[in-house]
């Protein structure tokens, strides 16, 4: 049944319901990755490229485009959130 959800800052997500799908247990070497902590103060910020919107234009921007400038990189839960 559908139900109304309260509007909050975290955005609700969906997912599979009902019976759990059978999980295939296949461990390949490539899947056993050690997660490295890449973020530490005093260390290089990992570079990335992402599509974006800026002043009326759709762009592709990389962090490394801003070498030579101070950068504030801000993540947030979603557009049209309230905070």
């Amino acid at each position: 049944m559908t139900e109304e959800i309260p509007a909050g800052c975290a955005r609700p997500t969906g997912g599979p319901t009902g019976e759990k799908p059978v999980e295939e247990v296949v461990l390949e070497k490539s899947e056993i990755k050690e997660e490295k902590i890449m973020i530490r103060v005093g260390r290089k910020a990992p570079d990335f490229t992402a599509p974006g919107y800026q002043k009326g234009k759709f762009i592709n921007a990389s962090l490394s485009d801003y070498l030579g400038k101070w950068v504030v990189l801000c993540f947030y839960p979603g557009d049209f959130t309230f905070v």
């Binding site: 975290a10 955005r11 997500t13 902590i37 890449m38 973020i39 530490r40 103060v41 005093g42 260390r43 290089k44 910020a45 990992p46 570079d47 990335f48 962090l63 490394s64 801003y66 070498l67 030579g68 400038k69 101070w70 950068v71 504030v72 990189l73 801000c74 993540f75 947030y76 839960p77 979603g78 905070v83």
Partner: peptide, 26 residues
Amino acid sequence: IYGIYDEDAGVETRGRFIIDPDGIIQ
């Protein structure tokens, strides 16, 4: 890669990084 993505909610949390002109996280 910045360690701020919330897998359960499927969104980024409010992470803010100050990066200097050499690309170093301060």
